[in-house]
Nucleic acid binder design. Structure first.
Length: 319
DNA sequence: ATTCTTCCAGTCCCTGCTGA
DNA sequence: TCAGCAGGGACTGGAAGAAT
């Protein structure tokens, strides 16, 4: 009743009100009530509030609908959504939530998900998506020898992929834990590329929008690569114009041409360029061009990105 | 921009109390 | 006597703020 009246209360308030110890409150009351879905916890230390849980929607147990093991494993491994309230829902749990929210029949949607997922999975080889064809069809002059996505940013109907969700929310909510999670997921892929193409120089595409914690910095630290670094600088313009805001290819190329500077002068054999999200590939292609112009690279320039769009610009509308 | 310090929610582990 | 719960104190991890 107290919480109902107050809407949301802190643990300390409850300790005062109930006259019990903090430990007792956490151990015997809050834990239980949250477990029973009576209360929900909002926020993270040092600011945490508890409030009454909204009437729980009908819990559908996995047993209540037919789903084969393949689909179950796949969904558990690859489905992730963030609810409007900022709650992270993963796997089957998240899938059921998503279906309920969109008024979709579970079984049929599961089948469709499986089908769509497989369709996109075909593009993956050794866990990487080769985007060479797309590059060639997008640009007249391609300066990258290879471009890989670790995953698509989104897939049709079902929206962002797991990596796409993580990336968006890590950047937007400035969540270091999420960023580190991403690093953990992508590190094996990057290590693999470095080995395969005998990379001796790594360049990180700098971000346009200033933020407290930059994903690229976390990445740089977390990846802990032993190769030399290719210094790439992004020039500050009067108004920062992120690539994702430009929806014409020529604009994107112009933007990249004018704001990206390769400040390095050293020489490399094979260079790997790392970006977080690729829409058209304009930034990476232009950066590669600048490296070529400076004759800094004797061998290949490989691009890799955490997520990429399937078609030209679907990344824009999604963001 | 980075590192150091402080603060605080939450946990862990142990002890003490109570009532059956 | 003993199960089960409450409480004390030390500890942890993360965030905010201060200092460099």
């Amino acid at each position: 009743k107290y919480i109902k009246d107050k809407k949301h209360v802190s643990a300390n308030e409850l300790v005062d009100y109930l006259g019990i110890s903090r430990q007792a409150l956490f151990k015997h009351h809050l834990a239980k009530l949250i477990d029973d879905h009576v209360l929900v916890k909002n926020g993270r230390p040092p600011k945490v509030y508890y409030s009454i849980a909204t009437p729980v929607k009908l819990e559908i147990k996995e047993k209540s609908f037919n789903i084969n093991n393949e689909a179950k494993n796949l969904i558990n491994h690859d489905f992730l959504i963030i609810t409007p309230a900022g709650e992270r829902k993963e796997g089957l749990d998240g899938f059921i939530y998503w279906c309920q929210k969109n008024n979709l029949p579970l079984e049929k949607t599961t089948e469709e998900y499986l089908k769509t997922f497989k369709k996109y999975e075909k593009y993956k080889k050794d866990g990487l998506i080769d985007s060479e064809e797309k590059l060639k069809s997008t640009f007249k002059n391609v300066f990258l020898d290879k471009l890989f996505y670790i995953d698509f940013y989104s897939i049709e109907r079902f929206g962002k992929t797991k990596l796409g969700q993580l990336l968006l929310y890590a950047k937007q909510s400035q969540n270091k834990k999420l960023m580190q999670e991403i690093v953990g997921i992508i590190k094996p892929n990057i290590d693999k590329i470095i080995k395969k193409f005998k990379i001796d120089g790594v360049g990180f595409i700098p971000p346009t929008v200033k933020r407290e914690t930059q994903l690229m910095k976390v990445l740089e630290k977390g990846l802990n690569l032993h190769s030399r670094k290719v210094e790439i600088i992004k020039i500050k313009t009067a108004v920062a114009v992120p690539q994702k805001t430009l929806n014409k290819l020529v604009d994107r190329i112009e933007n990249a041409k004018n704001t990206i500077i390769v400040s390095d002068n050293s020489s490399f054999n094979n260079i790997l360029l790392i970006d977080d999200a690729v829409g058209s590939g304009a930034t990476l292609n232009e950066t590669a061009k600048k490296i070529r112009d400076k004759k800094m690279c004797q061998g290949k320039i490989i691009g890799i990105t955490i997520t990429g769009s399937f078609n030209g610009f679907d990344v824009i509308s999604e963001v």
